[in-house]
Design a protein around this nucleic acid. Structure first.
Length: 515
RNA sequence: GGUCUGUUCGUCUAGGGGUUAGGACGUAUCCCUUUCACGGAUAAAACACGGGUUCGAUUCCCGUACGGACUACCA
């Protein structure tokens, strides 16, 4: 079997959609599984839709996800450079001309207006609304209706022209798709697609086939939207004489909206409050902002893991996979044919799983800079020490899905509260409680081994001595330390803070609450 | 409209001619915990519909319905 070579071939028309990332991922996984090559090709043949920063965005996204091509734009040239179609533009005309010579394509000189008119005429004649096809092309202004002399003259005069494929009037075209099996369509149902545009650049159909052939692509793994035009591509391979080296095709179902109908779009993300892009993006023209998974605090491996499971499964019940594990387990057999509705909740769940599994030290190091900035701490502040941070992370870990939530939801671990939950104070605060905390303030510092368990034991001891049930003062203690009624383990917090801070917080509270 | 394509719990999916149709997310309840979470347990929740084929169909076939994609000198 030939060495596997696959490609991801996006157009730089905007930020890379997560559906695109998934397509890239499946290409990567397939290549990796078979020890093959994965290449990145930029399909920028439409100058009108070109967006300047989009290419960088694509490259950065792939890097962030860890799905790095072996060769291609931004990842180093292999022996098939260049990988940007705009840089390959001189290569395509000759294939288009070859097609004309072999009688499988023709020059067409119709203007946009003329084509509009043609469409109308066809419609009036009551036939299908295909503008240029086997039955209607003789109505157009092209090298099939014009004499050789006229065509030569028009060409010489630099009259704008396109090259269209000449589809057979009737022929069944069969496509074998790895995921969907054999598909058949009639050539008479399709139109004579433009292969080469009047701006001197090929359309997707030609460029794609030519480059896949030239770059030795063995498997074309792409989105479902290409399925209908695959019939055309197959014909192109044959007409170009490349039938023998035609790649295998695998079409992936699309990602759908979480609710309602249709495919997932940027609007859904805005509307439902989840990112549709891997990275933040600001449109260079409209300045429109889109948020990305990276900036929302997702781990790249969690994001990739989540994406892999949208339309694919390993056939086992394992759900958490590293990239390498995904590559090992990947197979087309387990790709689901139907489109998958995107579920933002499940995406969060994946991140939660990765956060749980991550060592405390690692998370501590990740959040240190934000903690410092958020609470305006000096470099040598204990709260930035590995010991403190690790302990805080340990306490916070089971209650968040993202690292940044540790700072948002756990801010009371880093700074003393300035206000205290009113309802608990109103309900529980009384002279007995007051004297209890006074007593606690006395005894706590005497604890030699200041641990969670010992602090709890002492707390209960002091309460018992004063004829109080722990329940009478437990919740108050939490409010005194954190200002809140809910939060991390109470005595874990006591250990984290240390004698001095605990005392300070009790002191603060007593000052504030006493009235 | 035409062409291609798809349809298992609300969602992602496993399965496949005879199963109590399995798992995960989400939801609910209980346990753990004098908080909230985590964790554990349990529950509700699905084979789109109609015809065939068959002893038997959710599974195979055909229709219908409903979804999706495509139908540009865009990719």
């Amino acid at each position: 079997m030939k060495k596997v070579r696959v490609r991801f071939a996006p157009s730089p028309t905007g930020p890379l959609h997560i559906g695109g990332v998934r397509t890239a991922l499946y290409n990567y996984l397939f290549a990796k599984k078979h020890g093959g090559d994965f290449i990145l090709r930029i399909e920028d043949t439409d100058q009108n839709r070109y967006v300047p920063k989009a290419e960088d965005y694509i490259i950065e996204s792939l890097k962030w996800c860890g799905i790095e091509p072996n060769e291609g734009v931004g990842f180093g040239d292999g022996s098939f450079a260049p990988y940007r179609q705009s840089e390959r533009k001189t290569m395509y005309l000759k294939y288009a001309e070859q097609l004309v010579e072999s009688g499988n394509a023709y020059y067409a000189f119709d203007t946009v207006e003329e084509i509009e008119q043609l469409k109308k005429d066809i419609e009036n004649a009551g036939s299908h609304n295909i503008s240029y096809c086997a039955t209607s092309r003789m109505m157009g202004k092209n090298s099939l209706t014009l004499s050789t002399g006229e065509v030569g003259q028009l060409l010489e005069q630099n009259e704008p022209y396109v090259i269209r494929i000449k589809l057979p009037a009737s022929q069944e075209i069969a496509v074998t798709d790895i995921i969907r099996g054999q598909l058949i369509s009639g050539a008479n149902l399709m139109d004579d697609k433009v292969l080469f545009k009047s701006d001197g650049l090929p359309t997707y159909h030609l460029a794609n086939v030519v480059d896949d052939y030239l770059m030795g692509i063995t498997h074309v793994i792409r989105g479902d939207e290409w399925l209908p035009s695959t019939f055309l591509h197959v014909l192109l391979y044959e007409y170009l004489g490349w039938g023998e080296s035609m790649p295998e095709f695998a079409h992936l179902s699309l990602l759908l909206k979480p609710d309602g109908k249709g495919k997932l779009s940027k609007r859904d993300g805005d509307r439902l409050g989840f990112p549709v892009f891997p990275l933040d993006w600001t449109d260079p023209v409209t300045s429109e902002q889109s948020s990305g998974y990276r900036e929302r605090g997702y781990y790249p491996d969690a994001f990739v893991n989540m994406l892999a499971f949208l339309g694919w499964n390993p056939g086992t019940e394992q759900e958490i996979f590293t990239l390498d594990e995904l590559a090992k387990a990947f197979s087309f057999e387990h790709i689901h044919k139907a489109g998958a509705k995107f579920d933002p909740e499940k995406a969060k769940w994946f991140n939660e799983q990765y956060l749980r599994a991550k060592p405390d030290v690692e998370i501590a190091n990740n959040i240190r800079a934000s903690v410092k900035q958020q609470f305006n701490l000096a470099d040598d502040d204990v709260r930035l020490s590995e010991k403190f941070l690790c302990k805080a992370v340990q306490l916070l870990k089971p209650r968040v899905q993202f690292e940044h939530e540790m700072i948002e939801k756990g801010n009371y671990l880093f700074i003393a509260p300035i206000s205290y939950d009113e309802t608990v104070i109103a309900k529980k605060w009384n002279p007995a409680a007051h004297s209890f905390f006074l007593a606690l303030q006395e005894s706590l510092p005497q604890l030699t081994d200041y641990t969670t368990a010992n602090a709890e034991q002492l707390f209960k001891q002091v309460a018992a001595n004063m004829n109080l049930k722990p329940g009478d003062v437990l919740q108050l203690f939490r409010v005194i330390l954190s200002g809140l009624t809910v939060g991390v383990d109470l005595f874990g917090m006591v250990e984290l803070f240390g004698k001095e801070e605990v005392n300070k917080r009790i002191e603060n509270a007593l000052q504030t609450i006493v009235r």
